[in-house]
Design a protein around this nucleic acid. Sequence first.
DNA 1: CGGAATGTGGACTGTCAAGTCCAGTAACTT
DNA 2: AAGTTACTGGACTTGACAGTCCACATTCCG
Lengths: 211, 211
Amino acid sequence: MNTETMHDELVAPPPPTQKGREQRQRIVDAAADLVFERGVTEVSLDDIREATGVSKSQLYHYFNNKSDLLHAVIECQRERVLGNHRPTFQSLEGWDDLMRWRDMIVAHQAARSCRNGCPLGSLANGLAELDDVARNQLSGAFSSWGRIIAEGLTRMVKSHTLRADADPQELAVSVLASLQGGLLMAETARDTRPLEIALDAAIAHLKSFAP
Amino acid sequence: MNTETMHDELVAPPPPTQKGREQRQRIVDAAADLVFERGVTEVSLDDIREATGVSKSQLYHYFNNKSDLLHAVIECQRERVLGNHRPTFQSLEGWDDLMRWRDMIVAHQAARSCRNGCPLGSLANGLAELDDVARNQLSGAFSSWGRIIAEGLTRMVKSHTLRADADPQELAVSVLASLQGGLLMAETARDTRPLEIALDAAIAHLKSFAP
DNA sequence: CGGAATGTGGACTGTCAAGTCCAGTAACTT
DNA sequence: AAGTTACTGGACTTGACAGTCCACATTCCG
């Protein structure tokens, strides 16, 4: 806890040079996988080292410390998750698209036997009270996610699939909350049923704004 | 990991005698508080020892090991949470009661500056992939919680505040999912707004089953 | 081609946590 | 009151993990 530690706040050393960036990315990717599978608190730097075949000092070469790396992991998961959902909502036309989205999520969880919930959700739960930088990152990630959903809903308003008095932003938040809650309950019960019910209810609520 | 460890599965030694039970309860209560405030993974036995003014061997006298104690903590939180929500749903008559319930939850989170989400939710997130006994306990706790809500909704069906085609069990799950998701997002954003939106949406969905 | 900057390996340290041990004290029983 | 059982204190062991250090390699550039 000397003054050196202050450097933690400098989010990361500027990107190194060339292939160093690839190495760094490989570390972040592997770390993201491990963290997702085992939970934030259950992954040690040695685990990451082992999974990437990289040595301890490399980790400290690319990252100031563990939370610095974790912040990179959050960014990584943010990109992954938003990347998964963006296509649906960028071309969202009608209810069929939403149902396909629902089915995709349910099938995805079923394929994992409901192991692990939402990558961002569990990070949020594990870090919100522990690391304020992480909390803000995750808060931002949820906002972006909500914005993506809201954009899709706005398109539905414009095409008169939703009434004009529907508030896309609020509806997006309610959908996201149902998804998060449904994922948590499905994970806990090891059963997709709660997730299905939650998503169906969220979509039914959207439908109540149909003209 | 010798054969001795097998005894972990025997949920706990039978209740000791008399005031030992009080001591045990005091430990569980303090542990539940700590775990709630800091998160499961951030509480050591020494922390609990210090908070209760009890010595190491006492902990191991009352509990086989840490997860054994954690299981007791889960039971404790289950009782606390269900105890908080049962009154509302046991005497649930109409929409006003539900709005009061919503306001109560929001006010409660606001009073804590949205620090910490649902005690059961964060336990679930932290332990689901780590401890199968805990996961089953928490799954049971969510089921009970859902049943309590469903009982209230059943009363609303009987009094024709809800239509007969409303499925109280499913609706209860959707309400619970919205609550969990809303709490998580509120905790992450340090803002009650997402929680309010999620609960309002859940109640609006219930209202769509009004006659 | 030579030397600075950048990147890499792995041994080492300090801390902290779970779980053990055993010696001691209170309480209960007849 | 004696002896058995129930409970208590805290020192100790073991292992894991974050973070440091320094010697070695590679690349880059005059």
